[in-house]
C-alpha cells in the first residue's frame, strides 16, 4: 500500500473515491491538510479590521437583512409567536418600505404550518422561505428512523428548507461513514427542500474536526453547511466561519459547484454581520454574496441592522423604540 499523500491538490476523482465506502471516506478525510489554529484565527482577526464605511456599509446592511434566517427555536414557541415573527420577516421596518424582507423564517418542525399560514397572508410573504430544524434538533440524539420521520414531517408541512444536525457522537467516535450516510438519507427525505447541515462547531471543538465535518457534509449532498444550533457556545466565530467558507471555496475549485454557508449563533450586532460578509467577500468571493448561498441565522441581529440602517439614513441613532420587538 502506498503512503497516502496529503490532499493539497484535490481532483474530482478524489471526491468520487471518498464516496465509495467507509474506508475510502476515512482515508480521504484524514488526508485533508490540517488547520493551524493560530494562523486561522490571525487571518480571521485581520479581516475583522476591514473598515466598512458609507456606501459599502449601506450595501452590506441591506444584504445582511436579506440574508437573515429569522429564527425562533424555543420550547415556549406558540402560533402567536411564530405569526409575529413572520410579520417581522416580511416587513422588518414598518416605517420604511425600502427595507428588504429577510430570506427565511426558521422554526421547529411543528411550527412550519403556522409559519406558512402567516406568510401566506402577506403579499411579500411568498418570497420568504420557511426553514425547519429537524433530526432531533439540537442534540441529534435519536434513531435514524425518528430523524427521517422528523424531516418528512416538516417537509410535508411545507418546509422549504431543512436545517439538520449531524450526529456529533458518531463523528467524535470516528464513525464518519455513519455521519455521511445519515446526511444522505436526510437529503433524500428532503425531496425538493434545501438541506442545511449543522456541524455544531462548539461540540466538535477543534478546527481539524470542523474542516473534516464540512467535507463530510459536502460529500453527502449538503446544499448549505451551517456552524451551529445556537444552543452551544463557540458557534459562528469568525475563525469557524472562515474555515467553513474555505471549505466551500475549495469544493467549488474542484467541482464547480457552489455550496452555501450559514453562520448561526452569537451574531448579534451589525458589526458581527459585516465581519461575516467581509469573510465571504475575501474568501469565496462575491458570488457567495447572495441569500441563495449565504445566510445568517439570528434572532436579535435584525433589530441592530435596522437601527444601523436608520442611523445611516437619518444621520443619528434612534431609540430602540423605533424598531419592533418580535
Amino acid at each position: 500500500m502506498t503512503t497516502a499523500a496529503h490532499l493539497v491538490h484535490l481532483a474530482a476523482s478524489d471526491l468520487e473515491d471518498a464516496r465509495r465506502d467507509e474506508a475510502s471516506l476515512r482515508s480521504f478525510i484524514s488526508r485533508l491538510p490540517g488547520v493551524d489554529k493560530v494562523g486561522l484565527e490571525a487571518r480571521a482577526a485581520a479581516l475583522g479590521t476591514r473598515s466598512i464605511k458609507t456606501s459599502a456599509k449601506a450595501q452590506l446592511i441591506d444584504l445582511a437583512i436579506a440574508m437573515v434566517d429569522l429564527t425562533t427555536l424555543e420550547g415556549a414557541d406558540t402560533t402567536g409567536k411564530v405569526t409575529q415573527l413572520c410579520a417581522k420577516a416580511v416587513t422588518p421596518d414598518p416605517l420604511d418600505a425600502s427595507v428588504p424582507a429577510v430570506a427565511a423564517v426558521c422554526v421547529y418542525g411543528d411550527k412550519v404550518a403556522d409559519a406558512k399560514a402567516a406568510l401566506s397572508t402577506h403579499p411579500r410573504g411568498a418570497g420568504i422561505n420557511v426553514a425547519a430544524v429537524a433530526t432531533a434538533f439540537p442534540s441529534g440524539r435519536a434513531s435514524l428512523a425518528v430523524k427521517l420521520l422528523d424531516t418528512r414531517d416538516a417537509v410535508d408541512a411545507g418546509a422549504d428548507e431543512i436545517d439538520m444536525v449531524i450526529d456529533r457522537g458518531a463523528f467524535l467516535s470516528g464513525r464518519y461513514g455513519q455521519v455521511f450516510e445519515e446526511i444522505q438519507h436526510v437529503k433524500q427525505a428532503c425531496g425538493q427542500a434545501h438541506l442545511k447541515v449543522i456541524l455544531e462547531t462548539g461540540e466538535l471543538q477543534t478546527y481539524d474536526n470542523i474542516k473534516r465535518a464540512s467535507w463530510i457534509a459536502m460529500l453527502a449532498g449538503a446544499d448549505f453547511i451551517k456552524t451551529s444550533t445556537g444552543k452551544v457556545p463557540l458557534a459562528a466565530t469568525p475563525a469557524n466561519v472562515l474555515l467553513m467558507l474555505e471549505a466551500c471555496r475549495d469544493w467549488h475549485r474542484v467541482t464547480g459547484e457552489k455550496i452555501g454557508m450559514k453562520p448561526a449563533g452569537g451574531i448579534r450586532t451589525t458589526k458581527d454581520a459585516m465581519k461575516m460578509l467581509v469573510l465571504v467577500h475575501e474568501t469565496t468571493g462575491d458570488e457567495w454574496l447572495t441569500p441563495s448561498l449565504f445566510r445568517i441565522g439570528a434572532s436579535t441581529l435584525l433589530n441592530d441592522l435596522l437601527m444601523q440602517r436608520q442611523k445611516l439614513r437619518d444621520g443619528h441613532y434612534s431609540s430602540s423604540r423605533y424598531v419592533t420587538n418580535d
Binding site: 473598515s51 466598512i52 464605511k53 458609507t54 459599502a56 450595501q59 444584504l63 460578509l277 467577500h281
Partner: peptide, 10 residues
C-alpha cells in the same frame, strides 16, 4: 450575486 467594493476609508 452582489458586486461589493470597500468604500474609501481614509
Amino acid at each position: 450575486m452582489t458586486h461589493f467594493e470597500y468604500a474609501p476609508a481614509p
